[in-house]
């Protein structure tokens, strides 16, 4: 481990679904300041749920039942709801998966982008607007005035995602959750958007929790990785180490199943049944232990 201060530290986080099943099983992970931490796993593994727990937007009925989330040294559980909202709003941002539904269809782009600046940080409207124009230039949007005055449906998917990226970085958050930010886009646009995020991340020194199921993307962008299966972190390692010497059978299976894991277009292939059986045992063991501890 490096001596860098931690931006985010999640300790033994468990969350339950409305039916009482655990959707996160004692998840622990650390994100150092300014690094990209990839969260990999198949669909349904609970990757988005970790991001939502951290941002305080768990779906109705899903509850954090245990564990701690520490953002830049502040334990979120110790804060009153309003203070927690303010801290989250000021220090974090989300780059969502689907740039279509992530923008309000009946509001113009400009005001949606300045919300965070004016509401949480209390910037005057004029400087917020200036900041937004600056950010639009940073994401290579050539006609900022047209975009600011546009409604979301007037922009292409790639443009919308650029807008959301600009909005996420505008308030200089310490941590950004990027939840599969390229999955909903055309293959040709995916690479540009990925490069854009990596570029801004480096320039602004922002830590990113990067959710993906694409090992190719992980290899390109991240410094450290957590592999998630059924709400359980099965392996956690710096990226080069993970790719050089994967320790868990599931990680190995994922890599074997992704032909040349530097190829961004291919996603995960089915994992073989022996590995799945082993994983099922681990999940069962974790649940038994948890039930014993919680009566």
């Amino acid at each position: 481990m490096t001596a860098q201060p931690l931006c985010l530290s999640i300790g033994a986080l468990s969350a339950t679904l409305p039916n009482g099943d655990r959707v996160l099983r004692s998840v622990s992970l650390d994100v150092a300041a300014g690094e990209v931490h990839a969260l990999v796993g198949e669909s349904g593994a609970g990757k988005s749920m970790i991001g939502k727990a951290l941002l305080g937007v768990l779906p109705p009925g899903v509850r954090q039942v245990e564990g701690s989330i520490t953002l830049e040294g502040t334990r979120l559980e110790t804060l009153a709801p309003a203070a927690r909202r303010r801290l989250i709003g000021a220090r974090t941002a989300l780059i969502p998966q689907d740039p279509l539904t992530a923008l309000n269809p009946s509001r113009r782009i400009g005001p949606q982008m300045t919300d965070r600046l004016t509401h949480i940080l209390g910037w005057p409207a004029a400087s917020a607007r200036a900041r937004i124009r600056e950010m639009l230039a940073e994401v290579h949007i050539r006609e900022p005035d047209r975009v600011i005055a546009a409604y979301p449906h007037e922009l292409s998917g790639g443009m919308r995602q650029r807008v959301l990226i600009a909005a996420a970085f505008a308030a200089e958050p310490r941590l950004i959750v990027a939840d599969e930010p390229t999955t909903a886009l055309d293959v040709t646009v995916q690479k540009q958007i990925l490069r854009l995020i990596a570029d801004l991340q480096r320039r602004h020194g922002t830590a990113i929790l990067f959710v993906t199921h694409d090992l190719g993307v992980v290899a390109k962008i991240s410094q450290s990785v957590s592999v998630l299966y059924a709400g359980m972190v099965v392996e956690r390692a710096p990226a080069p180490e993970l790719f050089a010497t994967p320790r868990h059978a599931y990680t190995k299976a994922l890599m074997a199943a992704t032909p040349r894991y530097t190829h961004p277009a291919s996603s995960l292939q089915p994992v073989n049944s022996a590995v799945l059986a082993e994983l099922a045992l681990e999940v069962r063991a974790a649940d038994t232990e948890w039930k014993r501890a919680h009566g």
């Binding site: 939502k52 941002l55 305080g56 937007v57 909202r85 303010r86 989250i88 709003g89 974090t92 941002a93 989300l94 969502p96 998966q97 689907d98 539904t101 992530a102 923008l103 309000n104 269809p105 009946s106 509001r107 949606q112 919300d115 965070r116 509401h119 949480i120």
Partner: peptide, 28 residues
Amino acid sequence: RMDYIENARIVGFGRWRIMLSEVLPNVL
């Protein structure tokens, strides 16, 4: 259920504000 509501919550808007200024225009 749309993501823009989630975004408004992350930005720190209260529930009534989200209901009136984010949801209402879309059900108008």
